[in-house]
Design a protein around this nucleic acid. Structure first.
Lengths: 190, 190
DNA sequence: GAAATCATTTGCCATTTGGCAAAAATCAAT
DNA sequence: ATTGATTTTTGCCAAATGGCAAATGATTTC
């Protein structure tokens, strides 16, 4: 819970009363590895803050292939913000690829915080744009790298994960086939 | 100017008085093809809404190569939102790749609109998250496509542009070399 | 309009990545 | 432990892309 508060405070000030209010609205939840937190077709009605574990966001492309859009690790919010904002079904899945613990803020809770805390919306806006910009930057950078560089960067960021998640999750994220990824790994380690 | 108002109204309601206020704060500007609107190292202190022309957002990667991050066409806002929010120097350039006309809203103007118009922040937040999400989706989709598919999609979106901008701008966006792009174009048309 | 400059195309070949299927390894259930 | 299912690795070859440099084409400048 403190992790969430610390995170929020990076983006704006909250006094103790406001912090307590946030805490009072937040609910813990956890899911096991491989479970889906959110499924395509459903309207997201809450925002979560990951405190433990890693999610992958994925979708089926126009060829029906499961594509990992990005990974999210602890200390970050998870939500399909457009579907959430506009109340429309999401087109992506959020799957726990390790056991995960997180803090839930329902849309109701968010609304109340917004109405009660001056500056809340500003904090959320900053978090949103920062989170999305990071995703743009990350994927954009990958576009000008070759597969090996992409893998090495992923490995650097998620060293424990690289050899523990299914090849398919990682390969689709890196924009290569599973066999290519397998060969790249071999070349690096060998 | 109407284009901006129409755009804003897609994300929330504004009464006539509020619309007039927005108009009173907005300033026209235009720049010529190839000119830079924003340069890396400078702190962005305004937001613009493109009414005519196309920008490209670019940066120099760790190898010193000029990489096009994305293109923005008319009817969209342009700003490095994180640098703008946090008052830190941007790391990217915004270059007009055609003659461009746009509407400027200074940070001051934005602040006043925010303080005066209930719901303004909400409109801006929605525009921001929608714009960034679209970029994530676009680039993310490209990751699972081959170079020809990427080019065809670009061509579909910017048919007039594909043959009029320098190869280097487009190739780096598509994540391929200039000669590869040249060959892909040849294969398609021939 | 000629020279100089810059951008694009092309040839040649190397390297990377993909496609497919079989083999090997891993994991799960009994 | 053994079977069965799933995932990963590997071999083989094809296709895609890169690297480099020369040739061609386009644009700018004087």
């Amino acid at each position: 819970m403190e992790a969430l508060i610390d995170y929020l405070l990076q983006f704006g000030h909250l006094n103790q009363q406001q912090i307590d209010l946030v805490k009072s609205k937040a609910v813990f939840r956890e899911i096991k590895k491989d479970e889906h937190y959110q499924e395509a077709g459903k309207i997201p009605r809450e925002v979560i803050f990951l405190t433990e574990g890693i999610f992958r966001i994925c979708y089926y492309n126009n060829k029906g292939v499961d594509i990992t859009k990005y990974f999210i690790d602890e200390g970050n919010f998870v939500v399909d913000i457009n579907s959430y904002n506009q109340n429309i079904p999401s087109s992506e899945y959020a799957q726990a690829i390790t056991d995960c613990k997180f803090i839930v803020l329902s849309k109701e809770a968010m609304k109340q915080l917004s109405m009660t805390i001056i500056g809340w919306d500003d904090i959320i806006a900053k978090i949103t744009s920062k989170g999305l910009s990071e995703k743009v930057n990350k994927i954009s950078t990958m576009m000008s790298e070759d597969a090996t560089e992409r893998y090495l960067n992923f490995f650097e960021r998620f060293p424990k994960l690289a050899n523990r998640i299914p090849l398919s999750y990682l390969a689709s994220y890196l924009g290569i086939t599973q066999s290519s990824l397998s060969r790249i790994r071999k070349n690096i380690s060998g």
